[in-house]
């Protein structure tokens, strides 16, 4: 198999690794109708890592549902994953909002609303935008914009900043593209909660009690958000050739992954092999 992998670059560091972060969509499964489909080998790969006792978190920018729903969806596909193994922007932003005493106006998918159940949304003072899907229409966006510019200091918080993702074999615009619209309209910059924000990777590592980001690996199918973001935070960044990966991502103009792998299964096999 022509893998294009240069094992030495990251495999030599496997012995020092204390934990692994994996993206979900495009690495564990491909989303689509009826819950999507598991990527071949990924179910077994996750099981192997767990059996080897490797701390593992699933770090996603998914904001169309709750972490409980994500876990349920993955488990229906054959994975064995608990909600608290998943790090997602919606729960993360709730902490952020409470900490800064912010009350959001929410432009998010209806299915993720339960994550915000304990958040005060009366008399809002910031706009939080997630991957709202069909909610991204002129009427809703215009209302959100009018609210945003009514604030003395418009504050825009984006749950991730992805350009697009793949669903049902179709590429779709992601939250970042619509946040770019708000940024342009109000002439402001959004604060990002989610990948590739370093704080989000740090938070994911903290849940595994890992204090040194150099001792962790992130694997994902988004060259900028997953790989580049993780590297900026100090982690090793591995690019996987599944999900929304396109051959044109390789080589990338400004992100050089620590390694490329064909799928999660290959990554786990290489990792476990070089760990010994």
């Amino acid at each position: 198999m022509s893998t294009g992998v240069t094992p030495g670059s990251w495999c030599s560091k496997c012995g020092d690794i204390e934990g692994i972060l994996s993206d979900i969509t495009g690495v564990l499964y491909n989303s689509g109708k009826d819950g999507g489909t598991a990527i071949p080998g990924s179910i077994e790969a996750v099981a192997k890592l767990k059996a080897a006792g490797i701390p593992l978190r699933f770090c996603t920018n998914e904001t169309q549902c709750t972490t409980i729903q994500i876990a349920n969806k993955l488990n229906r596909l054959g994975f064995s994953i608990k909600p608290d193994e998943i790090v997602a922007p919606a729960p993360a932003v709730c902490g952020f909002l409470k900490q800064r005493n912010l009350r959001p106006c929410l432009l998010v998918h209806p299915d993720v609303l339960p994550e915000f159940a304990e958040i005060d949304t009366t008399n809002p003072n910031c706009l939080v935008v997630g991957d709202a899907g069909e909610e991204f229409n002129y009427g809703r966006m215009n209302k959100a914009f009018q609210f945003l510019v009514s604030l003395d200091e418009p504050l825009l918080i984006s749950l991730g900043c992805g350009r697009y993702y793949k669903e049902d074999d179709t590429l779709r615009m992601d939250v970042g593209s619509f946040v770019a619209a708000f940024e342009f309209a109000a002439d402001i910059k959004a604060e990002i909660v989610g990948k590739p924000s370093p704080a989000f990777f740090q938070q994911s590592l903290h849940t595994m009690d890992i204090r040194t980001s150099e001792k962790a690996i992130m694997i994902g199918d988004d060259i900028v958000s997953d790989v580049g973001g993780a590297q900026k935070c100090g982690l090793l960044g591995i690019m996987v050739r599944t999900g929304k990966y396109r051959p044109s991502d390789e080589p990338h103009s400004y992100v050089t992954p620590d390694g490329y792998v064909n799928n999660l299964a290959q990554f786990v096999d290489m990792f476990l092999e070089h760990r010994i």
Binding site: R163, M173, D174, A180, A185
Partner: peptide, 27 residues
């Protein structure tokens, strides 16, 4: 245009933001 103002005094999104969104999505 980023936005325009209607007779109701409110600002409305212009075409610029949607062009920007497509630019961001496709680089």
């Amino acid at each position: 245009a980023r936005y325009y103002k209607k007779a109701d005094g409110l600002l409305y999104l212009g075409p610029g933001p949607f062009v920007s969104g497509l630019e961001y999505a496709t680089d």
